[in-house]
């Protein structure tokens, strides 16, 4: 009786153990399969772009890439995007960093309300604004110039950056700031000398994100800039696209890859930081 019970129990244990092993193996297999499938689907058009850009039938060629740089204004588009992106980053940081600091540290009754208002502003869809903004841009004499984009893009990037930076700032212990104030700095001085440097990695993440948003924006770029050589890469390549000419297709295709890869790599570097910032934001609110 006792022995039988023990044997049954042992068999049950073995069954459970096999089940657990099987589950573990299945889980690992699912994770790897999921990772491979996800990566392939995400990269599919770019992989195809690379293949078609560098391969002509079966022999490798750089003809399409040379065509892209020599016979299309691709380089000019990229330069325009770099200028717009750089300036938008500067404007965004100048506006968002102090605002985020005010929201995260200087506790005011209306602080939360302002934060929510800024969040809501970031949800206002651009199609509701582009017609009026094109009037504004025209009135300011910025029509058909990249300056219009430098003026308008921060409406997209500032609210997001304020939220991310406020998250990073909340993670900085108040102690080090108070230490700096005890050591003889004013509140402003403490911010500039102690707080700002300690969130530099977070600022770098915001720089990358802001640049990515600025480089990818389509609606305003399409509406405000219409001369070929002044377009950023996001609208320029699409506008240059001739239907049906496989030669141009392949060149444009390689151009898309050249823009996509650096942006994805830069954002990939900061992925953990974005996740951390979002996580801290969702916890403290």
């Amino acid at each position: 009786m006792n022995g039988l019970a023990a044997r049954t129990a042992a068999r049950e244990m073995d069954r459970q153990r096999r089940l657990a092993t099987l589950q573990h193996v299945l889980l690992r297999a699912t994770v790897y399969a999921g990772a491979v499938i996800t990566a392939l689907i995400c990269a599919a058009p770019f992989l195809w772009g690379l293949v078609s850009a560098f391969a002509d039938g079966s022999s490798p060629t750089t003809e399409h890439v040379r065509f892209l740089f020599h016979s299309t204004p691709f380089a000019t588009f990229v330069l325009n995007t770099l200028i717009v992106g750089g300036l938008v980053v500067a404007v965004t940081l100048a506006l968002a960093l102090p605002a985020a600091y005010a929201l995260s540290r200087l506790n005011r009754a209306w602080g939360t309300r302002v934060a929510v208002a800024i969040l809501i502003v970031s949800l206002v869809p651009s199609p509701l604004l582009f017609l009026s903004l094109s009037r504004v841009v025209a009135t300011l004499g910025m029509a058909d110039s990249i300056w219009s984009l430098v003026l308008v893009y921060p409406t997209v990037t500032v609210p997001v950056s304020v939220w991310l930076l406020a998250g990073f700032l909340r993670a900085v212990p108040v102690d080090i700031e108070e230490q700096a104030m005890v050591d003889g700095h004013s509140r402003l001085g403490a911010f500039v000398r102690v707080v700002a440097p300690s969130i530099l990695p977070g600022v770098a993440a915001v720089v990358v994100l802001t640049f990515t948003l600025a480089a990818g924006e389509f609606t305003y770029a399409l509406t405000f800039v219409w001369s070929g050589a002044r377009m950023p890469v996001s609208t320029g390549l699409a506008a240059r696209l001739g239907d049906g000419d496989p030669m141009l297709w392949r060149s444009v295709q390689s151009g898309a890859v050249f823009v996509a890869l650096p942006l994805a790599l830069a954002c990939g570097l900061f992925l953990d930081r974005f996740v951390a910032a979002l996580a801290s934001g969702s916890q403290t609110d």
Partner: peptide, 11 residues
């Protein structure tokens, strides 16, 4: 008295 290596916590 039973070997539990490989078993999940719940058992």
């Amino acid at each position: 008295g039973r070997l539990v290596n490989g078993l999940p916590p719940r058992v």
